[in-house]
Amino acid sequence: MTEHNDIIQVDHLNLWYGDSIALRDVTMGMPDRQVTALIGPSGCGKSTLIRCLNRMNDLVDICRIQGAVNFHNKNIYANDVDPVEIRRKIGMVFQRPNPFPKTVYENVAYGPRVHGVEDRKQLDAIVEKSLRSAALWDEVKDRLHDSAMGLSGGQQQRLCIARTLAVEPEVILMDEPCSALDPIAAAKIESLIEELKTEYSVVIVTHNMQQASRVSDHTGFMYMGELVEFGTTRQIFEKPHETLTENYITGRFG
């Protein structure tokens, strides 16, 4: 595997919700234009960690953070960093598809508009490009002005990905993006992830270990708020170094 520089580096990150600690001294790198998967049992901290990567945890009052998340070698928690700008560059797709109750077109055009794009032609181009990148264009090009709520679950999820792509992020975070989808829709998202990594870096949290092993280049196994092991996906699934990782991925606990 060729060497990829880390686009995001998590550096000795600790996180507390009130008095309870949710992340313990996590240090890891997310390689540029690669897919990094985070796996682990429920409550291990993987969702908390992925939310730290674009400051989603800012919205949680009782959340306290120590350590750094460096994006292009700059700590995104530094005082002079605008979280809105961070969230544009580091987009997020959630477990349940959450399109806005608007048309397909407006869902995708919303972000660019917020960021100041007003020219109709330019918006049209962004919408088409984003929908194409999300492998949805052919399915919705004749119903751009219908409500997004009329799309299937899998289509809605790809619409959410298109919405994220519309603001030209560098990193896409996905928190269980397939767990509310049927296997066919999930397979489409998986092949989409494969295509996305030519242009974007992807970090995905998943309960589904087969999915992690299929889509990712690197895998981190988390347990009780700690990153137990991080390595190439092949190494983790063929020859994990840690007994804990071995026991988890072979289904001996979790």
Binding site: E238, I249, T250
Partner: peptide
Amino acid sequence: YQPVARDLR
């Protein structure tokens, strides 16, 4: 079962 790691080996 799509085994991994030691089970697969």
